[in-house]
Design a binder for these strands. Structure first.
Lengths: 140, 140
DNA sequence: TAATCAAATGCAACAATGTTGCATTTGAAG
DNA sequence: CTTCAAATGCAACATTGTTGCATTTGATTA
């Protein structure tokens, strides 16, 4: 997920969104992180943007499928950029979200084997898998 | 999970908890439901108990492994009684939580096949699987 | 059954998080 | 440069959950 400022503007306009400084800054923050980002982290970076605008910006990005909720703990929600395979309809078919209890980072993990979940007589729309444990970097 | 009032008292005392009217009422509410229960539903039932006491009661039950968080949406948390296989350490090894988008109920579902998740060099402590879709009753 | 005391509760106040309405500003198109 | 819908900032509010502290109560012991 490499995005220059110009590419970000193109992305925003392709979704019929104005390329405002706040939106560019939020997206820049997200792409700088390899792991998912909390609202408070976004707020910490965008100091000269109103709290309400940040909430609305995130909601807009969620609606347009630019970001997704990677992990929701009791305290905080973690957001991450969507990648190309990740439509707003089906985020989780072959990946999951991992919260490391050592470094507290949330990362998206791709699965090599697809997970098969069988629930007879149920219709499955969305599968969210959240795992907590110790990530590969902290294990090493 | 059949619990008479007397059995509930025994359960509470076995965890070194006093069998107060509020605790009995909260547990009675949970066992009356086949699906997981929200805080607001508990609050709706326990009208003569202070809000703060209900929060503390739920927290105590979580700590003691009597209930667990079945599902956490943006708006609400769903709680459910723990069954016998379900220690406070490892809730989710062979079951998942299903949120039906038709009837809005959250239910625990047992899996016939254990799910195998492979993440090389990671240490997995807890696996939460949340599925949204249409449950067997609403499909019928 | 009465006395005792830690545990549990109720109340008030507070904190954090997120939302809504509305006036003002601004990005992008002509 | 003008125009206008979209985006923003501000104020006020709603919801959710927490903390401190005085009072009450369940369970134990005498």
């Amino acid at each position: 997920m490499e995005l220059t400022t110009e590419e970000t503007k193109v992305l925003l306009r392709s979704r019929k969104l104005k390329a405002t400084p706040t939106r560019l800054e939020v997206l820049s923050t997200l792409k700088k992180h390899t792991s998912a980002v909390t609202f408070s982290e976004i707020q910490r970076v965008c100091t000269n943007t109103d709290r309400v605008t940040l909430y609305r910006t995130i909601q807009t990005f969620l609606d347009k499928g630019i970001i997704h909720k990677a992990y929701q703990s009791e305290e905080e929600t973690f957001y991450a950029l969507c990648n190309h395979n990740c439509s707003s309809e089906a985020h989780f078919h072959d990946h999951l979200h991992f919260k490391c209890s050592t470094c507290d980072q949330v990362t998206c993990q791709q699965l090599t084997d697809e997970i098969k979940i069988v629930l007879p007589n149920f219709k499955i729309n969305k599968v969210d898998i959240n795992i907590t444990g110790i990530c590969n970097r902290c294990c090493a």
